[in-house]
């Protein structure tokens, strides 16, 4: 009797999960995708513009983190800091940046952005090579805008204002006006938590904050893991996101110690792993190739047009991933 009850419970669970899974898969609009739906439809009409709007406010990733509760996202461009121009010799190179030994003997760490973006430019950096860096320093971090190699090759990472080109280009002034109908989330809704990771799985990370433990969803596993940032128990991180009913949705995770970031959602809280949206599928499905073009193109510096021509409404992140 007891045995049968237990077994029935197990069977019911599995069958139930299967049915719910199917239902989730076919249901046209999920709660969390509600925000996705609309921009996607607009995208069909106005591919280029939409792409930029979706992406623009993410521009400075630092911005998101600092934009706790009250700071409007767009404001924080100045966070990249003042221009910083030096030459030096690469002593250590990793996926997200390099350590430079400057002529005065000091060493600095220069951030290069997502590996999927800069490595796709086919400008190989090497240890012991001397390079010329044009970038920004805010006193804490140094972000490279361009890295010039002795042979004349150049990595282009940010534009003159410090905006990362991998985020899909520089939004023009026109963005402001148009973003109105699309924005589902107002900047005040964004909140930041920080704490120490107490456990990580493929799809969740639990951190100890000063208010107790908190578990956040990382969304699609491959998407965040492909960004190359590892999360380990004991890391201090800050997460930026919003509360949707009682669920906390994360847009971005930053590792405090290294400054590395995992981007999960755009400023409209649209999941980046959801891709370009239904209507853009046709142009996007040429796969890695087409998407990586998006990344490449933007490295050329014409962030403006690129979003549109690389892929339906490529948003930079997809471009980055595709080229990986």
């Amino acid at each position: 009797m007891a045995q049968k009850t237990v077994i029935s419970l197990l069977v019911v669970t599995i069958v139930g999960a299967f049915i719910i899974g199917l239902y989730d898969a076919v249901r046209p609009s999920l709660a969390s995708d509600a925000a996705v739906e609309e921009p996607a439809q607009v995208a069909a009409v106005l591919p280029t513009a939409t792409a930029e709007i979706l992406v623009e406010p993410l521009a400075t990733a630092d911005a998101l983190v600092d934009a706790a509760a009250t700071t409007p996202l767009q404001q924080s461009l100045d966070n990249v800091g003042d221009t910083w121009t030096r030459d030096g010799v690469i002593t250590v190179l990793d996926d997200f940046g390099m350590t430079l030994e400057l002529s005065d003997g000091s060493s600095v760490y220069v951030e290069l952005g997502p590996p999927s973006f800069w490595q796709a430019q086919n400008v190989p950096l090497m240890v012991d090579e001397s390079v010329f860096v044009n970038g920004f320093s805010n006193g804490e971090q140094i972000h490279a805008a361009t890295v010039l190699l002795p042979d004349g090759a150049q990595l282009t990472l940010r534009n003159e204002t410090g905006q990362p080109l991998w985020s899909g280009g520089t939004g023009g002034g026109n963005v402001q006006g148009q973003s109105e109908p699309l924005t589902q989330v107002s900047p005040e809704d964004w909140v930041t938590f920080s704490g120490i990771i107490s456990s990580v799985s493929n799809s969740t990370v639990t951190l100890k904050t000063s208010d107790g433990p908190m578990t956040v969803q990382l969304g699609q596993q491959r998407f965040w893991q492909d960004q190359g940032v590892t999360l380990a128990v004991g890391d201090e991180i800050s997460v930026l996101g919003i509360w949707q009913s009682s669920q906390f949705q994360v847009a971005e995770i930053t590792k405090t110690q290294t400054g590395e970031r995992i981007m999960l959602r755009d400023p409209n809280n649209r999941p980046l792993w959801a891709g370009p949206g239904q209507n853009a599928q046709g142009s996007g499905n040429s796969g890695g190739q087409g998407q990586s073009n998006g990344g490449q193109g933007s490295s050329g510096g014409n962030g403006q047009g690129n979003g549109g021509n690389g892929q339906g409404n490529g948003n930079g992140y997809r471009g980055g991933r595709g080229s990986n």
Binding site: S32, T215, Q220
Partner: peptide, 14 residues
């Protein structure tokens, strides 16, 4: 990735 396949369930379940 069960949580992604069952997005409408809390992860405690999924």
């Amino acid at each position: 990735d069960l949580p992604a396949l069952l997005p409408s369930l809390p992860t405690l379940i999924s």
